[in-house]
C-alpha cells in the first residue's frame, strides 16, 4: 500500500503529464489547421495536371514514343518502396500503420520473387523498418529541416528517385503515406509512382460534355509529356508529404486527447484512493486518542 506521500507525488506527476498532453493537443490542433489548408490548396494543381496528362496520353498513337516513366522499364523485377512517415512519435498509430502496410507489401513482393528496396522519408518509419529490413534499406531522407513543406522539397526527392530510375536501380516505384480523411480517421495508402498510373475513370461525364478538341503543342507533344511526367512525380510526392503532415497532426491530436482524458481518469482514481487513506489515517488516530483516554 503506497503511503500518503507517495500518492500525493503520484497525483502531482500525473497532473504534470496531463498538462503536457493537453498542450501537445492544442499545438497539434493549430498545426492541423494549417496542414489541412495546404492539403486542400495543393489539390487543384494536381487535378489540373492530371487532366492535361490524361489528354496527352490519350493522344499518343505510336507505342514507341511512350516515355519510360509512363510505360515503365518493361520489367517488373525490382520494386522500390518509398515509405513516408513522420519525424516524431507520440501520434498514436500513425507511423506504425504506414510501416505495417509497407511491411506487408515487402513480404508479399518478396514471396513473389521480386527484389525489394526501401527508401524511408522521415525518421520514424526508418526506425521501425530497419529492424526487420536493414539489408534492403537503400537510403533515408530526413524531414527535420523542412519546417514548412514546399514544392522544392518534393522536387529534391523526385530528382533523387529519377536519378535512381535512370540508373536502372528499380523498375517499379510505389509510395506509402497516410491519406487524411478526417481528424479522427487517416488511411494508410500506397500509390504507384513509376510507371505512372493516370486514373482511367477521371469524370467521364466531363469528357462527354466537351468532345476532345484537336490541340496544338508547343514544343512537341513528347517533350511536354516528358516534362509533365517528371513534374507529376514531384506533385504526387508533395501530395503524399502534405497528406502525411495533416494526418500526423490529426493522429497526434486524437492520441493526445485520449491521453489527456486518461490522465484525468487516473487523477480521479488516485484522488479517491488518497482521500480514503487520509480518512483511514484520521480514524486510526482518533481511535488511538479515544482508547488512550479511556485507559486512563
Amino acid at each position: 500500500m503506497p503511503s500518503l506521500k507517495d500518492l500525493r507525488n503520484r497525483i502531482a506527476s500525473v497532473k504534470a503529464t496531463r498538462k503536457i498532453t493537453k498542450a501537445m493537443q492544442m499545438v497539434a490542433a493549430a498545426k492541423l489547421r494549417r496542414a489541412q489548408e495546404s492539403v486542400t490548396s495543393s489539390r487543384p494543381y494536381a487535378s489540373r495536371m492530371e487532366k492535361v496528362l490524361l489528354n496527352l496520353r490519350n493522344g499518343i498513337t505510336s507505342q514507341e514514343s511512350v516515355p519510360l516513366l509512363l510505360s515503365g522499364s518493361g520489367r517488373d523485377r525490382v520494386h522500390l518502396l518509398v515509405v513516408m512517415t513522420a519525424e516524431r512519435g507520440l501520434c498514436g498509430g500513425f507511423n506504425s500503420s504506414i510501416a505495417r502496410l509497407a511491411r506487408q507489401d515487402v513480404l508479399r513482393l518478396q514471396e513473389a520473387g521480386k527484389t525489394v528496396k526501401l527508401l524511408c522519408v522521415g525518421r520514424k518509419g526508418y526506425d521501425i523498418l530497419k529492424r526487420q529490413f536493414s539489408d534492403i534499406m537503400m537510403d533515408r531522407i530526413d524531414l527535420k529541416e523542412m519546417k514548412q513543406l514546399a514544392f522544392s522539397d518534393a522536387e529534391d526527392i523526385a530528382n533523387n528517385l529519377l536519378k535512381k530510375f535512370e540508373g536502372n536501380e528499380f523498375d517499379v516505384c510505389t509510395i506509402y503515406f497516410s491519406e487524411f480523411i478526417s481528424v479522427i480517421s487517416q488511411k494508410p495508402t500506397s500509390l504507384q509512382l513509376i510507371p505512372a498510373r493516370i486514373s482511367e475513370t477521371s469524370s467521364p461525364e466531363e469528357d462527354k460534355k466537351s468532345p476532345e478538341l484537336l490541340c496544338d503543342f508547343e514544343p512537341s507533344e513528347g517533350e511536354i509529356l516528358d516534362f509533365l511526367l517528371n513534374r507529376n512525380i514531384a506533385t504526387q510526392l508533395l501530395r503524399g508529404l502534405l497528406e502525411n503532415s495533416a494526418s500526423e497532426q490529426g493522429a497526434r491530436m486524437t492520441a493526445m486527447d485520449n491521453a489527456t482524458r486518461n490522465a484525468g481518469d487516473m487523477i480521479d482514481k488516485l484522488t479517491i484512493n488518497y482521500n480514503r487513506q487520509r480518512q483511514a489515517q484520521i480514524t486510526k488516530e482518533l481511535i488511538e486518542i479515544i482508547s488512550g483516554a479511556e485507559a486512563l
Binding site: S41, Y45, F151, P219
Partner: peptide, 21 residues
C-alpha cells in the same frame, strides 16, 4: 495555379503568357 495554391481564378479579356518560343 502553383503547386501550393490557386493564385488567380477569374475572368479576363486578354492574357499574355511567356511561351517558350
Amino acid at each position: 495555379v502553383s503547386p501550393e495554391r490557386v493564385l488567380v481564378s477569374e475572368c479576363s479579356e486578354h492574357v499574355i503568357l511567356p511561351g517558350i518560343a
